[in-house]
Amino acid sequence: MLIELEKVAKFPGSPWLAQIRTPFGRTTVRWCGDQTAEPGEYHVEWTVDEDIVWGRNAEPAADSGPGVRPGGHCIVLRGQLNPTEDGAAVLDFDGSLILLDLADPLPDGVAGTWVELFIEREKIALYPYEL
């Protein structure tokens, strides 16, 4: 996914954080790239290191379309959720696919719907890459 990096900073007791902008929202997220990265456009891969539990950190979205926003101590991602054959799931986040681990199978009727994920800030990260 192409994002606009606004700045990278580190606060005491926290990982490196990036303030980013996407076409559908802004947030601050853990940055796993060069800590001296200059503002500008970067291709990134999103990773989520938290099991998805329907009804706890995943729920139906009120709106359709991709979205990202801060949500207190978490980051809220909105995308289309689909299970995989091996018991995991994939969030289609504006064409970028984020692989997710599920604690339990998804409820019937959830596949392909718009959902919001509420992921703890420390459990989501961006990894920049070059094409």
Rank of each mutant, 00 (worst) to 15 (best):
E38S: 14
G109K: 11
G65A: 09
Y42T: 01
G67H: 10
E41C: 04
V76H: 11
I3P: 08
R121I: 06
D63K: 08
A61W: 00
G25K: 10
R21P: 05
Q19W: 13
A61K: 01
L102D: 10
L102W: 03
T22P: 01
G33R: 10
W16Y: 15
N57W: 06
R78Q: 12
E122Q: 07
R30A: 12
G55T: 08
A62N: 09
R21Y: 06
K10H: 08
V115G: 08
I98P: 06
D34H: 02
D86Q: 14
C74Q: 13
E59M: 13
E85W: 09
E122A: 03
D101K: 14
R78G: 07
T113H: 05
L91M: 05
F24A: 13
M1T: 12
K123E: 04
I3F: 09
D86N: 15
S14H: 09
F93L: 14
V29P: 06
P23G: 14
P23D: 15
R78F: 11
V68Q: 02
P15F: 06
C74E: 10
E41L: 13
G13L: 12
I119C: 01
Q35I: 06
L5V: 04
A9S: 12
G79I: 02
G55L: 07
F93R: 00
Q35M: 02
A111H: 05
E122H: 11
L91N: 12
A58M: 03
E4V: 08
P107M: 13
F24S: 11
R30N: 06
A62G: 10
V115A: 02
P39D: 11
G112S: 07
R78V: 05
E45I: 07
Q19C: 00
G79Q: 04
G71C: 11
G55W: 03
L117C: 04
T28N: 10
I3M: 08
P23A: 11
P60D: 00
E38F: 05
T27R: 02
V29G: 06
P23Q: 13
A89G: 13
G71R: 08
E4N: 11
D108R: 10
H43L: 14
M1K: 11
W16E: 03
E6S: 02
P70L: 01
N82V: 09
V53E: 04
G112P: 13
F118L: 11
P60T: 06
L81Q: 08
P105I: 00
A18W: 14
R30Q: 12
T28Y: 04
I75R: 03
G65P: 12
R56D: 06
W31R: 07
F11Q: 10
F24Q: 10
E38N: 08
I98D: 09
A18P: 05
R56H: 09
G71H: 10
Q19K: 13
